[in-house]
Write a protein that binds this DNA or RNA. Structure first.
Length: 252
DNA sequence: AAGACGGTCAACCGCATTAGT
DNA sequence: GACTAATGCGGTTGACCGTCT
């Protein structure tokens, strides 16, 4: 945990909005060196920021795979479901919404969803919409997207960031979905760097481990609702995580 | 046209937790 | 076990922008 960095060498830390130049420095540094000690990142990257600020900027804005843009109705439903069971556990929610940062979910909740819920509760306390939401949220495993996922004929995802998979799942090399899925272990992935040495695309044949199924299915269902893959920063992803010949999912 | 107001979002702050010494 | 520093997390702030009056 401790990091032998020369934090004291930093005279003062810049605050406020990030400039494009700063973004580029941070992105270039992480893509080239991977994630290590955040306190040393600004020094090595030539930024007058503290490590905390760099981490936030990376996770909320620069990290490849971030979706950005409007939340879909499905994503909002997931947030409502999770919030009713987890409360204000934004980081836990973000694990169920690949491509969304905890900050993004939190902001969307405070700016929109919270009011929506309040309005809904006030207008129809005994309405079916409220009761249906509560019935959905009584058990995380019984969420509507989980139910519909079990139906046949769904398109399978072709590619997943390892960061989108919970650490619990990633403890095994075998993942519990049917078919082939490309799991990407990019150099910035804390989960992937040690196990896969980064910069690899692993084409995994997935097995049927029941105890892992629900979490991964949840994740995949979310993925299936992504309509426009171009909203992802695929260029950054592939340039950093693969060599051109390895991009088996390039056709996505 | 311009000021007020409200909504959104990026970023900061402070506390809690984790992990090394 | 105590101390210390790094990191994670949630709450809050402030800048910006669009709409309203």
């Amino acid at each position: 945990m401790k990091c032998k960095s020369s934090v004291n060498l930093i005279p003062k830390h810049k605050k406020g909005l990030w400039s494009p130049d700063e973004d580029e420095k941070l992105r270039d540094y992480i893509l080239n060196h991977g994630l290590g000690c955040w306190s040393s990142v600004p020094i090595n990257a030539g930024l007058q920021r503290n490590g905390k600020s760099c981490r936030l900027r990376w996770t909320n804005y620069l990290r490849p795979g971030l979706k950005r843009g409007m939340f879909t109705a499905h994503e909002e439903q997931i947030i409502l479901t999770l919030h009713s069971t987890l409360g204000n556990k934004w980081s836990q929610m973000s694990r169920h919404l690949p491509g969304r940062s905890d900050n993004e979910i939190k902001n969307h909740w405070h700016s929109y969803l919270k009011k929506k819920v309040v309005k809904s509760d006030a207008s129809n306390e005994d309405s079916s919409s409220v009761s249906s939401l509560k019935s959905v949220t009584s058990s995380p495993e019984s969420s509507p997207h989980m139910d519909s996922l079990s139906t046949a004929g769904k398109i399978q995802p072709k590619i997943l960031f390892v960061d989108w998979i919970s650490p619990a799942i990633d403890n095994s090399d075998e993942l519990s979905v049917s078919g082939d899925v490309d799991v990407i272990y990019p150099p910035w992935s804390s989960q992937g760097t040690t196990k896969k040495e980064g910069s690899r695309v692993s084409n995994l044949n997935l097995s049927n481990e029941v105890d892992m199924e629900s979490d991964l299915n949840d994740l995949i269902y979310t993925y299936l609702n992504i309509n426009d893959v171009n909203m992802y920063n695929w260029d950054d992803l592939y340039s950093a995580s693969t060599t051109p010949s390895q991009s088996s999912s390039r056709s996505l």
